[in-house]
């Protein structure tokens, strides 16, 4: 990854499976990288400010937290309206991720993806209705794809 200097890269490698669970995790990372704790913190601040780190915290396992109904709601939204509407949908409390993606007709006519997580499918139905209301007449069709099994889930995997 070209934007990364070698130390940033090693910082990614050392933290992609998680932050060390010790009292001074940044000092521990510094020991592994041969730099000071202050240098680690300065780099992390910079990477967080640039958006390379989205957040530092718990990466949840939805199923284990009781979210049994995890769905990708997908919508065929008018191209002229999708950017504005995507922002509104992305801002809804029930939507955790929202993306615009290319359609792949004929199998896949949808260009707006909004992920929702709920305790059960009835709750997802309510969320789908709410999203549909925001999209109004600009959505021509939609579908709801429930995940039935996690086949694989890992963090970012940069080779060391």
């Amino acid at each position: 990854m070209s934007a990364l200097d070698p130390i940033d890269r090693r910082l990614v490698v050392e933290t992609q499976a998680g932050l060390p669970l010790v009292a001074e995790p940044y000092a521990e990372l510094g020991r592994r990288l041969g730099i000071s704790a202050d240098a680690v913190m300065t780099r992390l601040e910079r990477l967080a400010a640039s958006g390379a780190i989205r957040r530092i915290g718990v990466i949840p396992n939805h199923y284990a937290l009781g979210y049994r109904a995890n769905a990708m709601t997908v919508w065929d939204v008018d191209d002229r309206a999708v950017s504005e509407l995507g922002k509104l949908v992305g801002g809804m409390a029930c939507v955790t991720h929202c993306y615009r993606r290319p359609r792949r007709p004929p199998l896949w006519p949808y260009n707006l993806f909004a992920m929702v997580h709920a305790r059960d499918r009835a709750e997802v139905d309510g969320m789908t209705v709410a999203i549909g209301r925001v999209l109004g007449g600009h959505a021509r069709a939609h579908d709801v794809l429930y995940s039935t099994r996690i086949l694989k889930k890992t963090g970012l995997r940069l080779a060391a």
């Binding site: 933290t15 499976a17 957040r55 530092i56 990466i59 949840p60 396992n61 284990a64």
Partner: peptide
């Protein structure tokens, strides 16, 4: 397994 991990979410 209640959480996948704890740490930075890299973009």
């Amino acid at each position: 397994g209640t959480i996948s991990r704890f740490g930075p979410l890299w973009d």
